[in-house]
Design a protein around this nucleic acid. Structure first.
Length: 547
RNA sequence: GGCCUGUUGGUGAAGUGGUUUAACACAUAGCCCUCUCAAGGCUACAUACAUGGGUUCAAAUCCCAUACAGGUCACCA
């Protein structure tokens, strides 16, 4: 009885060889400097901001240097899998226009290196595992979860390193005959990789972010195939898939750092070349005084869905994540205001090697700037698309009269120093509702320094009858308000007023405030002239008469 | 507990032994401008780079120790 007999017993139906598979996945035709990156989420729910950051890095690397960016669905954990998850993830990527070159989605396969869904690659993994068994680098393990727990407890008690290694590798010592008998007896088993590492030996591992790391060799015989569904574990699938799909840079979270030695060892066992690694820092969240990993359950901003729902422009989210990816991004962007973020050269060395707090306030600022630079047509179409999904009230306002809505958006827009008060589409309704007559009922007015209703009525009457004219330019319009102010005993010149406050009842601002509140109910609004221009005399009159 | 990684203002951070009196941006505060607000302009904001020791003419930058924080030790990824 040989290892070959054992391998045939375990995989009687595997007839292909490693060479057969290798032929199916020929080297990619890459130019110099071109890279192959991949985004490989496991479909366990909505997309997390940490995942998004990784996808963005993958995408940018390939945009910088050319190459291929592909999506691989890592669905080897059937217990945690969520049905629709991969669609949700793909939808999020599409929303941000981070579309992979190769993917498998909606029964459509794009690319020659598929299947891109791990559960569909079972046969491939089995070929390689079979090979490993044949050459004596993998073996079946019959230890039960109870056995393993017991072992770990004993290790903990005696304060030695936990794990299936060295003298604890019980099933490694089984003879081929014993193993074959157990399998024939239907004893459940997993397949373990036979490590040849020595924990006392340190090796150098390169990470593009952290630099050279001095790590102990792996000596644990890791599980590479699970007992119940014969699917591979992450470690094994990573090695096989990234080799066959010819990934050149693996971007993944920092939590994988401790297991790179396992991966390198497996790459070596097959004689494969290991990819370069970018281990990204964790995104953190401050909670009181302590800092922790941002969490899907506790933090709304951990889920990419949140940014969509609330209506941040996709570019704002991208740019705010870019500031975490590379700290020099912001400066670069200031110097190159007209370039796309895709022109930015990603440099892993510029990535922080410790975790970063994600700052929602910063996002607001970035987003206000981006929205302020949109034309009214752009903002209209983006906010309209958003409202159809998330805000019926805004949607119906827009649909009432598209041009009117655009004109409202255009107040203090499309000029050199545009207004910056919208951070997200969700803000719009509360900023503009008073521009709509059917919403302008049952109003509570926030008057300023002039509160007496008969004074107010008096001001409004004089203004509309003696001064207001739709055809006035802004200068003429304001000059008239000044004249009105003087006539009623209010200073028209602020400097003059500050010098001699006693001589006046107040100043132009008080008069303007009366007009503003009468028209909008609010003390703070965008430019009054532009608002009046949009209303026109008869609507102004209507609003005044509502007082 | 073992192993690994990290620690510069409220936040993202620049910085790789000497014009850094620690950039820049956000936040915060004040002033200016102004019909209000949003902006915009100006100003302030780390006595000091976790702490303690070294090395050096010179250290946030190199070395050591300590503290703290995070990651990881699954048939989860």
């Amino acid at each position: 009885m040989t290892n070959k007999d054992l391998a045939n017993l375990i995989f009687p139906n595997v007839t292909k060889t490693v060479e057969d598979i290798e032929k199916m996945y020929p080297k990619r035709q890459l130019k110099e400097n071109e890279e192959v990156t991949r985004f490989a989420p496991s479909p366990t729910g909505f997309m997390h901001i940490g995942n998004f950051m990784m996808a963005l890095i993958d995408y940018i690397i390939v945009n910088n240097n050319g190459g291929v960016f592909y999506l691989r669905n890592e669905d080897t954990d059937k217990n945690r899998e969520v049905d629709d998850a991969i669609n949700l993830i793909m939808d999020t990527l599409k929303h941000y226009n981070i579309v992979p070159d190769e993917y498998e989605y909606d029964n459509k396969v794009v690319g020659n290196y598929g299947p891109y869904i791990q559960s569909k690659r079972m046969e491939i993994y089995h070929v390689y595992i079979k090979h490993l068994i044949e050459i004596g680098r993998a073996y079946p393990c019959f230890c039960t979860p109870e056995d393993l727990n017991l072992m770990r407890e004993r290790q903990e008690q005696t304060k030695i390193r936990t794990g299936y290694y060295g003298r604890f590798t019980k099933c490694r010592k089984l003879s081929v005959e014993e193993a074959i008998n157990k399998i024939k007896n239907k004893e459940p088993y997993v397949i373990r990789f036979k490590s040849n590492g020595d924990f006392e030996n340190k090796i150098w591992v390169d990470d593009l972010v952290k630099g050279r790391l001095h790590l102990s060799e792996n000596d644990i015989d890791d599980v590479i195939m699970k007992s119940d569904n014969l699917l591979p574990t992450y470690h094994f699938a990573h090695v096989i898939d990234d080799h066959l799909m010819h990934t050149t840079i693996v971007v993944r979270g920092e939590e994988w750092l401790p297991s790179v030695t396992k991966h390198i060892q497996m790459f070596e066992a097959f004689g494969f070349k290991a990819p370069k690694y970018v281990h990204t820092p964790l995104i953190l969240k401050k909670e009181g005084e302590s800092v922790r990993k941002i969490s899907k359950r506790k933090d709304k901003e951990a889920l990419m869905k949140y940014y969509e729902e609330v209506g941040y422009p996709s570019l704002a989210v991208i740019e705010s994540v870019m500031t975490i990816i590379n700290s020099n991004y912001e400066q670069w962007h200031q110097e190159n205001p007209d370039k796309s973020f895709l022109d930015f050269q990603f440099d892993p060395k510029k990535m922080s090697s410790s975790g970063a707090l994600y700052d929602l306030v910063k996002l607001e600022d970035i987003s206000k700037n981006i929205i302020s630079k949109m034309t009214k047509d752009e903002l209209y179409s983006k906010s309209y698309e958003w409202s159809k999904k998330y805000d019926n009230k805004l949607q119906s306002l827009i649909e009432q009269d598209v041009d009117y809505y655009k004109n409202i958006l255009n107040i203090e827009r499309e000029q050199e120093k545009p207004r910056k008060d919208i951070a997200k589409y969700q803000d719009i309704y509360n900023l503009i509702w008073y521009m709509y007559d059917d919403l302008f009922t049952d109003i509570s007015y926030e008057w300023g320094s002039i509160t007496d209703i008969s004074d107010i009525k008096n001001i409004l009457n004089i203004y509309i009858n003696d001064y207001y004219n739709d055809n006035d330019s802004k200068d003429e319009w304001f000059a008239k308000i000044k004249i009105l102010a003087e006539r009623l005993g209010y200073a028209s010149n602020m400097k003059e007023y500050k010098k001699n406050k006693d001589k006046y009842k107040g100043n132009v601002a008080d008069i303007a405030t009366v007009l503003r509140v009468a028209l909008t109910s609010k003390k703070n609004t965008p430019d009054l002239y532009e608002i009046m221009q949009l209303f026109g005399k008869s609507r102004i009159q209507n609003r005044f008469s509502q007082i």
